[in-house]
Amino acid sequence: MKAIVDKDTCIGCGLCPAISPEVFDMQDDGKAGVIVDEVPSGSEDSAKEAESSCPVNAISVE
Rank of each mutant, 00 (worst) to 15 (best):
C10D: 03
I4M: 07
S60H: 03
D45T: 13
G42V: 14
D29E: 06
V39W: 02
P17H: 05
I4G: 00
S52W: 13
V39L: 09
P17W: 00
Q27T: 12
P17C: 10
P40I: 10
P40M: 11
D8Q: 11
P40L: 13
P21I: 07
V23E: 09
Q27C: 05
P17L: 09
S43L: 10
V34C: 01
C54W: 07
N57I: 08
I19Y: 01
K31T: 11
V34G: 03
S52T: 14
A47R: 01
L15I: 15
S52Y: 14
G14A: 12
V56D: 08
D45I: 10
E62K: 14
E44Y: 03
V61S: 09
S52C: 00
D37T: 14
G42F: 06
Q27G: 10
E51T: 06
V36S: 11
V39I: 12
D25S: 15
C16H: 06
D25Y: 07
C54D: 01
F24L: 06
A18L: 14
I19H: 05
C13F: 12
A32S: 12
T9F: 00
M1R: 10
V36T: 04
A18H: 08
I11C: 00
A50D: 13
A32H: 01
P17T: 02
C13G: 12
V56K: 00
S46F: 02
C13P: 09
P17G: 06
E22V: 05
V61Y: 01
G33P: 00
E22P: 01
E62S: 13
I35A: 07
A3T: 07
A32K: 05
G14L: 12
A3R: 07
E49I: 13
A32R: 02
A18I: 05
I4T: 13
P55F: 12
S60C: 07
V23S: 10
S41Q: 15
D37E: 15
S60K: 14
G30K: 11
I35K: 13
D37M: 14
V56F: 01
P40C: 07
V39N: 03
I19Q: 03
E38L: 06
A58G: 10
P40G: 08
T9N: 05
E44M: 09
C54G: 04
F24H: 04
Q27M: 14
P21H: 10
A47K: 00
G33E: 11
P55E: 08
A50C: 12
D28P: 03
E62H: 05
G30I: 10
T9Q: 04
G12W: 11
G30S: 04
I4W: 11
L15T: 12
A47I: 01
D37H: 01
A50V: 08
S20T: 07
